[in-house]
């Protein structure tokens, strides 16, 4: 069975691709130990124990990397035409956001986000419908498993030439590849969620005479939702990476195409500035998806407890 526990080989990071209850419980105990293992009379005083909190240390780390970047470029350790100083890049970032190039940047961002959102919505709709159809019947699950497992690892970028042949260098091509990349992730999470519906709860609902659509609302949907939200969160990042990749490779309009253009114009500063901005965009999307996940699942406190167990 394709359960997320066995690993949907997709997200950029495995945080929830491996929802392992044991790990979670271990972590909470470990947290407790760390919290309590801070004796007042400790012999080994480290930074952290001198009251340097984690956020402060994190900021120190970021500043250190920026300083290394700036200095290595300024002192000529790295050829500045390959790696312009951070300060120069930041000026360019500001220029992209509010200055001369802002029109070009925001238009490109709009195109990228258009491909991202439409692709995500389509894969979500397809994934939910097909996932529920497949997941709700054990027999169907068994007979589709091999096909899904076979098609899932096919790299999305392999489809770029096909998408171009069919749709041309237009947003539709981007959307098509994004859908391919995200659909499988949503699909296996939905299937796993539907398969996870507690047979006892389902039987109870049946015995109380709940009609099947009401049963779906009361029993199936709350179980599937956490799985779906995990899949959606993973897809937020995947869709962004795929969209920008296609834009870079085939110059489909968007941030990626803008990066490729400035690279061929040998304007490295803008390339770095755009790379930084895509990082910020990636972080923002990740944060947004987490907020969405938390707020959606907060409506189902019982479900939430179940997932965290």
């Amino acid at each position: 069975m394709t359960r997320p526990a066995a690993g949907p080989a997709t997200g950029v990071r495995g945080d929830s691709a491996d929802p392992d209850a044991r790990t979670t419980s271990n972590r909470s105990t470990r947290m407790a130990t760390i919290a309590s293992a801070r004796p007042t009379g400790s012999r080994r005083a480290t930074f952290a124990r001198k009251g340097w909190s984690t956020p402060v240390l994190g900021a120190v780390g970021v500043l250190a990397i920026i300083a290394i970047w700036e200095l290595s470029s300024r002192l000529g350790l790295v050829d500045p035409s390959y790696l312009p100083p951070f300060s120069t890049v930041i000026v360019e970032v500001v220029d992209l956001l509010v200055g001369q190039r802002s029109g070009e940047f925001w238009a490109a961002l709009g195109m990228t986000m258009y491909g991202w959102s439409v692709g995500l919505v389509i894969s979500l709709a397809l994934g939910i419908v097909i996932g529920v159809l497949i997941g709700s019947n054990r027999w169907v699950r068994e007979y589709t498993n091999s096909t899904i497992e076979f098609l899932r690892p096919i790299p999305s970028v392999g489809l770029i030439p096909i998408a171009i042949v069919i749709f041309g260098v237009r947003p539709a091509a981007t959307i098509a590849v994004v859908v391919w990349a995200c659909f499988w992730v949503i699909l296996i999470h939905v299937i796993a969620g539907v398969a996870d519906v507690d047979p006892v709860a389902d039987a109870t609902a049946r015995s109380y005479g709940l009609k099947s659509f009401r049963r779906a609302g009361h029993v199936v949907w709350p179980t599937v939702l956490p799985y779906l939200m995990t899949g959606l969160r993973l897809c937020g990042t995947i869709a962004l990476v795929v969209a920008i990749t296609i834009e870079i490779v085939v110059q489909a309009p968007g941030i990626g195409a803008m990066i490729a253009t400035y690279q061929s114009a040998a304007n490295v500063t803008v390339v770095y500035a755009l790379a930084l901005l895509t990082g910020v965009l990636g972080l923002a999307i990740n944060l947004l998806m987490r907020l969405l996940e938390n707020s959606v699942l907060a409506w189902h406190p019982s479900v939430r407890a179940e997932v965290e167990k």
Binding site: S36, R38, P39
Partner: peptide, 10 residues
């Protein structure tokens, strides 16, 4: 003797 430092005091 063992005293833990916790956010709410020792």
């Amino acid at each position: 003797q063992k005293v833990y430092s916790t956010p709410t005091g020792p």
